[in-house]
Structure formats: structure tokens, C-alpha cells
């Protein structure tokens, strides 16, 4: 089943398009890695898809009412803002605000599951603002998980996390996809993206320039043309390894 469908989506900043004619569908079971250099339009694409940015073209999510959309897709913004010193548990429970009619039991279970998944059991009662940046990032991911939606859009979810938390987060996302949901995440670590995602979408200057299986998308030509780097590839038992090795231009 298709969980997100974008048709000729265009976002303009002033006259200049930052996302141009993107057509994309995401089906259940997919873990889509959105890759591309800074300023390629990854964040704008996600925000416009959710209806948070004015856009041209169609997005299946942006057409929904705010309440329905909140039950169709969760969003993890790039800026990790926590304004008040809420307890971790209360913060994660904010994700349940999208399900006003849900019974308290369902709310509690969803919060518990999200906290378990992100390994935050020991942090439950702590004040979220007193945690480190990486810990806060995990709490915010748990909040998005508690929203319990078929689709999760995450903007740089693993930036600033330690290696274990990065792997763990990618594993959680992959599990969500395997369970029949879908995840779209912008990721700068190409090797991590290649190992965890079922599909990569490569963006450059607002356009999708490659879309498909990770190994096909991360070709030498694409890397050179889009990122301007030369990469080192290797196959390991844990999956492909990719390391940028040199600047080409």
C-alpha cells in the first residue's frame, strides 16, 4: 500500500525553486534514505510533503486535515527543540496528542513501547532538558514513535548520535519498515544509509537524480557528480561499507 505519494512537488524560496518537480511514492515496508549534499532540498521536500511549506504539485499527506495527517505520518524535525523541562516520559507521551480518542491503555502501551525501543527505560523520570544532546535526540525519536503512525519522516535523525545510538536508531527504523510501516529519513552517513535502508533517493539542487537500491544509487558516477567525492567501497559480512576518500573538484 502506498503511504506517501508526491506528484510534481515544487517548493520555491522567492523565485528560486528549492525542490523541483519531485514525483515519489513510498510504500509500506520501505525504509527510504534521503541523501544528497547540504542544500539539496531534503528538508524542504519533507516539510512540503507534510504540508508545512507552501508548495505546488500534490502531496497525499498535505491534502489531509491536520488531525488525520497526524495519524498518517509522524515527523521528526531537524532542529531538536525542547522548550520546557518535561520528564522524558511526559515528553514521549506528547506523541499521543495525535490520538485524542485512544483509550489510556493504548496510550500507555505506545509510550512504553517507544521508550523501550529507544532504550530509554532508565531515563523515564529524568528531565529531558537536563540530558545530553544525543540523549535528547533519542527521546525525540521515541516521541515520534509514540505517535504510532504508518509513516515516519525523520530529518537527520542520527546526526550527533554516538555510534551505538546511530546503529540502534537505524535498526529501530528498519524494524518499523519490516513490520509493515515505512520510514523516510535524511541521512548524511552514506555507508550507514546503504546498510540499513531498503531504498535510497539521491537529491541534488532540488531534483531527484537517482532512486533505487542502495548499491545502484551509490555508484561512482553519482558520487562524483553529486557529492564531488571519490569513495572507497567494500563488501563486508555486515553489508556495504562506504567511505568518502577524496575531493574531486
Amino acid at each position: 500500500m502506498t503511504l506517501l505519494s508526491l506528484e510534481n512537488l515544487t517548493v520555491r524560496r522567492g523565485l528560486c525553486p528549492v525542490v523541483e518537480n519531485v514525483t515519489l511514492t513510498v510504500a509500506e515496508g520501505e525504509f527510504v534514505g534521503l541523501i544528497g549534499p547540504n542544500g539539496a532540498g531534503k528538508t524542504s521536500l519533507m516539510r512540503a510533503a507534510l504540508g508545512l511549506l507552501p508548495h505546488e504539485g500534490q502531496s497525499s499527506l498535505a491534502q489531509l486535515s491536520p488531525g488525520l495527517r497526524a495519524r498518517a505520518a509522524a515527523f521528526l524535525p531537524q532542529g531538536r527543540e525542547i522548550a520546557w523541562p518535561l520528564s522524558v516520559e511526559a515528553l514521549v507521551a506528547l506523541g499521543r496528542g495525535a490520538h485524542l480518542a485512544a483509550p489510556p491503555d493504548a496510550d500507555r502501551q505506545a509510550v512504553d513501547r517507544a521508550i523501550d525501543r529507544m532504550g530509554l527505560q532508565t531515563y523515564r523520570a529524568r528531565s529531558a532538558t537536563a540530558l545530553s544532546g544525543g540523549e535528547q535526540a533519542r527521546v525525540l525519536i521515541a516521541r515520534a514513535l509514540a505517535q504510532d503512525t504508518p509513516l515516519l519522516l525523520a530529518d537527520e535523525p542520527v546526526a550527533g548520535l554516538d555510534p551505538e545510538a546511530q546503529l540502534k536508531t537505524m535498526e529501530v527504523f528498519a524494524t518499523l519498515a519490516a513490520e509493515g510501516r515505512a520510514v523516510v529519513a535524511s541521512i548524511h552517513d552514506l555507508g550507514l544509509a546503504a546498510r540499513s535502508c531498503t531504498r535510497l533517493v539521491l537529491m541534488q539542487a532540488g531534483r531527484v537524480v537517482a532512486d533505487g537500491a542502495p548499491r545502484a544509487v551509490l555508484s561512482d558516477e553519482n558520487l562524483a557528480q553529486v557529492f564531488g567525492v571519490r569513495g572507497f567501497h567494500a563488501e563486508t559480512p555486515d553489508g556495504p561499507v562506504f567511505q568518502p576518500m577524496g575531493i574531486l573538484r
Partner: peptide, 8 residues
């Protein structure tokens, strides 16, 4: 952004 995505 997060609030809007939660239905606000």
C-alpha cells in the same frame, strides 16, 4: 514544525 505534524 513538530506541533504542526502532531495535528496542531
Amino acid at each position: 514544525d513538530a506541533a504542526a505534524s502532531m495535528g496542531v
